[in-house]
């Protein structure tokens, strides 16, 4: 069992954004977190990565909470933010070195993995450049490389498909498949439903800070009573429900 979220209630002030979320992300599973802007996707992610502290409920990663064993918890997870966050003073090579240090990785293995990823993203000739001056898409690739050289149990990716070119999206999906095969769990929030439908095993539909539905696509179809629907249809059905 990888990630367990129980009765998560949380937000930025006394008014909670998230209301009693319950879900699990087992290993070898890609989960799509889906909802409108303001539905609570980012807040959920912030609680899981530990930027926000839950007001109620618990989040366990491999049975460990952040408060209990912070280093173990943090080591088991990496995060690719929606907007790339880079160090202006570090080159691409130094970003990778820093990641190796921070996560206490085996340098040789990590560099081997990094080499593969960098070649895949055509960044291998830019090791001595400052990524802070890269285009947004390339910066995002740097973030992906830094996240995936860590052999984590859970990868969290916020909006992975915006800003990447089609080739890079395909490469990212391949990487996700590889990590899944290795045993990792992936949580990604996205608005690109067609891709999510194709590559995610399970979905969590958030609406107004609550989980409206979760499960595999067939399960969702059943819950919404739409036998012939795709994820788009279900999504709009959910939105229409809220509007009423």
């Amino acid at each position: 069992m990888s990630l367990e979220v129980e009765h998560l209630t949380g937000g930025y002030s006394h008014v909670p954004v998230l209301k009693d979320l319950n879900f699990t992300i087992p290993e070898q599973t890609v989960v799509g977190l889906i909802g409108l802007n303001g539905a609570g996707k980012s807040t959920t992610i912030k609680n899981i990565i530990g930027i926000l502290t839950p007001q109620k409920g618990t989040i366990k990663l491999n049975g460990v909470t952040l408060a209990g064993e912070p280093e173990t918890y943090r080591k088991s997870m990496t995060f690719v933010p929606e907007t790339p966050v880079l160090y202006p003073a570090l080159t691409l090579r130094e970003h990778i070195e820093l990641t190796i240090m921070a996560y206490d990785l085996d340098s040789e293995k990590a560099w081997q993995q990094a080499g593969d990823l960098l070649t895949r993203f055509r960044l291998n000739k830019r090791l001595d450049w400052f990524p802070a001056n890269f285009s947004k898409g390339m910066q995002q690739k740097v973030m992906i490389v830094c996240a995936f050289i860590v052999p984590a149990d859970l990868y969290i990716i916020d909006e992975p498909f915006t800003g990447l070119d089609p080739l890079a999206i395909r490469d990212l999906l391949t990487i996700i498949e590889q990590q899944k095969a290795r045993g990792a769990a992936v949580l990604m929030s996205t608005h690109v439903l067609a891709t999510a439908q194709q590559y995610a095993d399970r979905f969590i539909l958030l609406s107004g800070g609550e989980i409206r539905a979760q499960g595999t696509l067939p399960e969702l179809k059943q819950q919404f009573g739409m036998t012939d629907a795709n994820l788009d249809d279900i999504y709009f059905k959910m939105i229409d429900e809220v509007a009423q």
């Binding site: 930027i51 280093e71 943090r74 080591k75 997870m77 990496t78 966050v85 160090y87």
Partner: peptide
């Protein structure tokens, strides 16, 4: 100086 950087808060470093 790194407080603005989200990743710094995620590193498993005490």
């Amino acid at each position: 100086i790194f407080n603005e950087n989200l990743l710094v808060h995620l590193y498993p470093v005490p």
